[in-house]
């Protein structure tokens, strides 16, 4: 499997809080990499760093084999990295089309918003992802259900021929049927050749769709492992009591 994104020894602190400590991480094309850990393990910090929301304090950010500098969300998007955040980052007052194209509006020759082509592309993408419950793409997002909002957020991320898609707890607020749909979608993205990074608390979901699992604990990397070679119990153990690698001063027990 070809590694597209690799982080080497990245650290990030917020004041006195060391959120990430010398963490290594990678994502391969065509694979779902699950990122797991208890609350405060540093999962969100890691993906926000990848997305360019804030820079890492130290460490290397390697994309397609080259060291890159990512200074903002635009840089990450230019590389082909898209993030679907837990809080979805949709503007409630705008309609579905406006949200899907936010920051990347298409313009016609006169510099006017090209609503027609955007609306078409939006309907095509949503149909191809089998988002079947939406009545109209001209509804404001505030009037949609939780599952519909999640679908819009995922569709927004995959619409841009992205290479890496990061999903932060995509199924946390969904019912059974909608979870099923989103997991199918996650698997489909990887099978299309994208690198998918899935953050989740739900091990059931992870064992269903992920290929590899990276476990973080208290800001440290515990272990990366293949799903086929591990078990529920082992992952839980690593999450809660895993040995912390590279801890200065901590003795191996």
């Amino acid at each position: 499997m070809e590694t597209i994104l690799e982080l080497k020894g990245v650290s990030k602190s917020f004041g006195a809080v060391q959120a990430l400590n010398n963490v290594d991480f990678r994502a391969n094309l065509g694979e779902v990499m699950a990122l797991v850990g208890d609350n405060g393990a540093g999962k969100s910090t890691l993906i926000k760093g990848v997305a360019g929301i804030y820079p890492f304090d130290s460490g290397d950010y390697i994309f397609e084999g080259r060291k890159v500098n990512v200074h903002g969300p635009r840089d990450a998007a230019a590389l082909g990295i898209e993030v679907v955040y837990q809080d979805l980052a949709l503007a409630d007052n705008l309609d579905v089309v406006a949200n899907m194209f936010l920051g990347r509006e298409r313009l016609d020759r006169l510099g006017r918003l090209d609503e027609i082509s955007m609306e078409q592309a939006c309907i095509d993408t949503l149909s191809s992802l089998a988002v079947t419950t939406l009545r109209s793409v001209r509804l404001p997002v505030r009037s949609l259900s939780g599952g519909q909002r999640q679908s819009i957020a995922v569709a927004k991320a995959v619409m841009w021929n992205s290479k890496v898609v990061i999903l932060d707890e995509p199924t946390a607020a969904l019912g059974v049927a909608q979870t099923r749909q989103v997991l199918d979608l996650v698997r489909r993205l990887a099978d299309k050749g994208l690198a998918v990074i899935l953050i989740s608390h739900n091990l059931h979901d992870i064992f269903e769709v992920a290929d590899r699992i990276t476990v973080l604990r208290l800001g440290y990397l515990v272990r990366e492992m293949a799903v086929k070679e591990t078990s529920y119990e082992e992952v839980v153990k690593e999450m809660t009591a895993g040995k912390l690698s590279h801890v200065p001063g901590m003795k191996e027990s």
Partner: peptide, 20 residues
Amino acid sequence: KFGRYLFAVGGNREAARRAG
């Protein structure tokens, strides 16, 4: 675009920021 961004910033500033 300017008009669309006015609404986006007023509706959800964080979403607008993340959209670049």
